[in-house]
Design a binder for these strands. Structure first.
Length: 522
DNA sequence: TGACCAAGCGCC
DNA sequence: AAAGGGCGCTTGGTCA
């Protein structure tokens, strides 16, 4: 059963609309009675208010996310994806551009009517059924929409973040919080050391000044990347490397960042579901997906609670084994340590197996890769051919799709022009590497999203998903729920595997541990 | 002054 | 230990 929510209106599809005085209350009643699939233009427009009112729903259909997936599959990548745009297209009306997702937008148009939302839904369901593999795409739509629910909930609940521990860590590394405009003491000391090494003032944040200063000292640099600096013999290098590391911490995850993103002991980032073309999530603020490892010690469970942290081991090669139906690779992927299982094929060395797999999935060509790829091709012909085909499609400007039907972007006009030019081979190979990786990364993202959706449904109250990063999840729950949540993670991984691949010999290990502190999880 | 780009580096 | 692709985010620097 589908039930539309638009503005203040609730419309059971096939029934009649009503405007309850208490929207959240009405949603809750219906959720308890019928557990419908809720349909709305965009989860971010509707769900946060429901969460604010204490209402959670189990399933939804997000029109904008679905439209985006459909348009890409239909070869119409980049057309406006909002429900409003989809509705306009249905009626041959002028199609509005998608609004940039900027907070405090200038225009706040009337929400689409519930009837219009229902029309767009019907059209989308029809288009899904017209696809070559509607069953898989239905799963993709459901998982993507469930992801939107999780993202909104994680934004609402937030990840535990101890502001006092964060402040102590920063003070330890940088010195006390400086007054505005000043560098923290330890950062300034390092900047002074750099200056002393050159014999004059240099802004260590300025690439230009650094390159010039090194040139003056007789050192020619192509860049100031740290791996290049490490090869240079000069007294400025050591303090400069230390400066770079700390400066990044200070500006990216320092006090100012905490002021903006941490409140009430919770870090509340803004996740963007499907924000990466491969289907991985992105963030539009807070940098939740780039938290440095050193910061993990700041993520601590509340007293009486615990963090359940789990990540999928070697997810991408397992996904490739399952997709390609490569018997040999699938057999190795039936083991917990896939690379050790593969090692025999590569002369007994685990490292060689790993390089071969990564090179196959990413298009690597350096070092031993060519030799090892030849082994890969001979021993695991179907897996090898699978990624080769994806690469070839990319080089020829064709589209590729994930297992469930997420579609790669088409090549740009600029690319087509480049390919016919003198540097054409390079541009073609670059896109080949992209599509080669796309089929694997996008399917891995689908597996992870499916896991997330299933796990969400298995969690006992008040356990909460608080973090999701590509192939890793974190749940915050009372101590006495730890075992149940750990079991739920394992069950969700098994179910995600079954949903995507049916019965496959490939295993997808997802080891969950209960920790007090995120830093203790690995 | 604001818009935009490049460099650089964090995460998977 | 890393290799690849993907992203976000900040700073400095340029340009209109």
């Amino acid at each position: 059963m589908h039930v539309v929510v638009a503005g203040e209106t609730i419309l059971p599809v096939g029934g009649s609309p009503r405007r309850p005085g208490d929207l959240a209350g009405a949603v809750l009643d219906l959720e308890r009675a019928e557990r419908p699939r809720w349909v709305w233009a965009e989860t971010g427009e509707v769900y946060p208010a429901l969460l604010g009112a204490g209402v959670r729903v189990s399933r939804c259909h997000d029109l904008a996310l679905t439209e985006s997936l459909l348009l890409a599959h239909e070869g119409r990548y980049g057309e406006p994806r909002s429900a409003r745009a989809a509705h306009a297209r249905l009626h041959g009306l002028p199609v509005p551009d998608d609004e940039p997702s900027v907070p405090g937008t200038l225009f706040a148009p009337e929400p689409l009517s519930a009837e219009a939302v229902a029309e767009v839904l019907a059209d989308q369901l029809r288009r899904v059924e017209a696809l070559p593999a509607p069953g898989r795409f239905r799963l993709l739509v459901a998982a993507e929409s469930a992801g939107a629910l999780v993202a909104a909930e994680m934004g609402h609940d937030g990840m535990p973040w101890r502001e006092d521990v964060h402040d102590a860590l920063l003070t330890d590394l940088l010195g006390p919080r400086p007054v505005h405009g000043m560098r923290p003491a330890k950062l300034q000391a390092l900047a002074d050391e750099v200056a002393a090494a050159f014999g004059h003032q240099v802004n260590p944040d300025s690439v230009q000044q650094l390159v010039k200063a090194f040139k003056g000292a007789g050192v020619a640099l192509k860049s100031t990347r740290s791996w290049e600096l490490k090869r240079v013999e000069h007294p400025a290098v050591a303090p400069l490397l230390a400066y770079k590391e700390l400066a990044r911490l200070y500006s990216f995850h320092g006090w100012v960042w905490a002021d903006q993103w941490v409140r009430g002991g919770r870090f509340r980032p803004e996740y963007v579901v499907g924000g990466v073309v491969s289907g991985r999530w992105a963030t539009s603020g807070g940098g939740a997906l780039q938290i440095p490892k050193v910061m993990r010690k700041v993520v601590l469970a509340d007293p009486g609670s615990t963090l359940i942290v789990a990540d999928a081991a070697q997810l991408e090669p397992r996904v490739l084994a399952a997709m390609a139906g490569d018997v040999g690779l699938a057999r190795a992927a039936g083991e917990i340590d896939l690379y050790s299982a593969l090692a025999r094929s590569f002369g007994g060395q685990r490292d060689h197996a790993k390089i071969a797999m990564l090179s196959a999935m990413y298009g690597g060509t350096s070092g031993d890769a060519p030799k090892l790829l030849a082994v890969m091709r001979q021993r695991f012909p179907r897996a090898y051919q699978f990624v080769e085909d994806a690469a070839k499609a990319g080089e020829e400007g064709r589209l590729v799709r994930s297992w469930l039907g997420r579609t790669s972007p088409p090549p740009s006009a600029g690319w087509r022009e480049q390919v016919s030019g003198p540097e054409g081979g390079r541009a073609a190979r670059d896109r080949g590497r992209f599509t080669r990786n796309f089929v694997v990364q996008a399917t891995a993202a689908e597996w992870a999203l499916s896991l997330l959706a299933v796990l969400r449904g298995l969690l006992p109250d008040p356990a909460r998903l608080v973090f999701f990063q590509h192939d890793e999840v974190m749940v915050h729950c009372p101590l006495d729920q730890a075992e149940e949540v750990i079991a739920a993670v394992g069950a969700a991984a098994a179910e995600a595997t079954r949903l995507l691949f049916g019965s496959t010999p490939v295993r997808f290990p997802m080891e969950a541990v209960a920790v007090d502190c995120y830093a203790d999880a690995k």
